[in-house]
Write a protein that binds this DNA or RNA. Sequence first.
DNA 1: GCGCTCACG
DNA 2: ACGTACGTGAGCGCT
Length: 889
Amino acid sequence: MEKLILIDGNNIIYRAFFAMPPLTNTAGQQTNAVYGFTTMLLRLIEEHKPTHMIVAFDAGKVTFRHEGYQEYKGGREKTPPELSEQFPMLKELLRELGVPQFEIASYEADDIIGTISRQADEAGRQVMIVSGDKDMLQLASEHTTVALIRKGVTDIELYGPEQIREKYNLTPLQIIDLKGLMGDASDNIPGVPGVGEKTALKLLHQFGSVEAVLAGTGELKGKMKEKLEAHADDAVMSKKLATIYREVPLEHSWEDMVFSEIKADTAGPAFAKLEFRSLLERLSLSAYAPAVAGEETEAELEAAALDITIVGTAELDELIAALPGISALHVESNGDNPHRAEVIGLGLSSPERHYFVPFALLQTPEAAKLREWLGDEKAPKSGYDLHRADLALHWQGIAFAGAANDVQLAAYLLDPTEANQNLNDLNAKYGLPRLSADEEIFSKGAKYKIPDLEVLGNHVARKSATVLGIVQKQEQELIETAMTGLFVDLEMPLSRILADMEKQGIAVNKEELKELGKELEEQISKLVTGIYETCGVEFNLNSPKQLGEILFVKLGLPVVKKTKTGYSTDAEVLEKLAPYHDAVRLILQYRTLAKLQSTYVEGLLKEISPQTGKVHTFYRQTIAATGRLSSQFPNLQNIPIRLEEGRKIRKVFVPSEPGWSILAADYSQIELRVLAHISDDENLKEAFLNDMDIHTKTAMDVFGVSSEQVDSNMRRSAKAVNFGIVYGISDYGLSQNLNIPRKEAARFIEQYFEVFKGVRRYMDDIVLEARKNGYVTTMLERRRYLPEINAKNFNLRSFAERTAMNTPIQGTAADIIKLAMVHMDKALFERGLKSRMLLQVHDELVFEVPGDELELMKKLLPEVMEGALALSVPLKAEVSFGSNWYEAK
DNA sequence: GCGCTCACG
DNA sequence: ACGTACGTGAGCGCT
């Protein structure tokens, strides 16, 4: 008798991870989830003797993240790396055991299982589905049993249609109706608020289905009736969501699912490598057991076998001769700020040979050919964080060019939310041999110490060596995710442009900045004296704890808001307290000025390079999950502008050559224009096609008045609504921002969606898309995974939904300005212009331009920016210039 | 190293 | 019923 077992791979590995105690092999890899999964698998095989078996996985590398959070420590957001590392291990092991596994792009495991079980059902075959997910019950039938895993991985309950009837008095298909009514937080199905399992069962026993319940609300009364009527759409949508898709285009045949027995010849070594000794025994494979405990793992042996040369003067010629075959390098440097980094040495790799060059050697006359190769843009190089390498080498007088393939940047595109993945994270992800951690080799922070040449050389050369393997894997993955173009034509070229901008830096008038500091100092000391007098006590004004003590205990002011650790004293709170005590207004002023002094005057002064008299920021291209850049050392993307006192800081940013000007251009309403395009909302598009003031237009539509009737308050509200729309609106958020009751905020939003119907459709669709795919994309196919779109926790899920709405908008705007930067760089080069791009501030580009190029640049810059990407509405860039950044407004 | 506060888009 | 606007970095106090 043929029997097929279908296993929900993602669900089970997650359960196993949380159910099993941590278990680590001697290589330091955690293996508990693989172990737990395997024991369950072996038990299923022994007890049920399947002739066919499939383990189904969610396609897309991170969609598994949304499972099972509730079992993990509260509030933890990311899949622990200890688990994600075990996915490739499990998949490899399944291959070695001879267990077929399926994953199909953009379908989840339950869809695959649903489809196969339907086909098997139709053919009258015996099927058992193994999962921890109750939703699977809908698949139960005459031939199909659902094995629900309860606590741990060994406690299994079997459900056929009869058992479901006993437990719920429902048919399997009615499980979908049940979910439709009661919802299921873990699958992000809203259901009808106020309807739980009990009520839902009662309704279904009475009516039979969601549709019948909704048609029959006339027979109900009271709150229940109201709720059902109000949330009829939710119920219908929830039912749809709860329905497992059973029409996945599967190319696999019944023969592809055949499982005969565990393949001993490959399973033995596999268990040995994982150090699953008990499983070796269980399968009588002890012959494969490692002879000595603590023996080196295969990965380590493989790594040890690398052909590494530590280059001294004697080996230099050999290295130089090998350069044409070398495609990967690693520049080892020390320090967070690449402009001040110490360069330690170079790892260089061809597929066959690996070299380490100490930095001292690189600087010698004998190494001229090597330096030439480093600066040769026709010698393509792969590496990890080549942007940083370029800067570090630059300040040591060594030119770098030819960055072709940055694995850090590619890893960012493949998953921009995964915090800067280091080389070892990437090795783990791709199943490549592990490197020693940098902390083991160099020690952390202040204890940083360069080890012996031998240790250092081996470590660094292995870094360049591993880049080669990573590049191969990523190439494929970029193709699969349709991001090759984004990587090759946008991000890689941009990284060189950013490095140029950073090396160039922007000049700062140090004397003027110091002068500004003196003025601030005077005002601050007056304020401090005044505050101490008014409060009748001296304390540390910079300590929120002490300030809270004074305001709320000593002066007895009302507590408006609390933080985790005590009283909140932020500006919003202080504004509310201002009428109660004279000191509060002074404290607010103190905060403003103290911020300017410490962050912008003192902070900026510290960042002025003694060599160039400029500040050289470092743009990070792999931080922001939306695709934006970020800026560090110093951050030049948050220089004050909103308040006049702060805005004056911008006066100290000046051209670096006499007779030059600062020229700036910013996109006008780029995010709302992007929204108009993506949502295809007729009204919003109309507004931009007519170049209307978008906030006034929104006010007209939301309040139903003519443009003359829009007062400043209405426009302010409309502006807040527009912001909210871009951020993924909630009535609560808007009410906070506008300081109005939530109901009123909800009315605004409702009004907005009445007039901008296309926007509402976009917001609904993008959330559904995120649920279906597990990710959202920008216009240039930049991707962001949203595993929490299915979280059980309301907060996590709502956050993911807002992110789904915001990321395509913010991310497309980021795509556009990045395109503009690449186009602008090219335009400057082709025309032989001397003007230099200096800064990017999300929707603004800042240049310094010679007097004789000013007129040309005033035309060229907005033209290029507006033409960066064609949308269904025009892009608009507004240009301005002056003798410093303040004047360019 | 983390929480709070505040600067920007 | 749940309780938040989206994306960042820096300085400071405190543990």
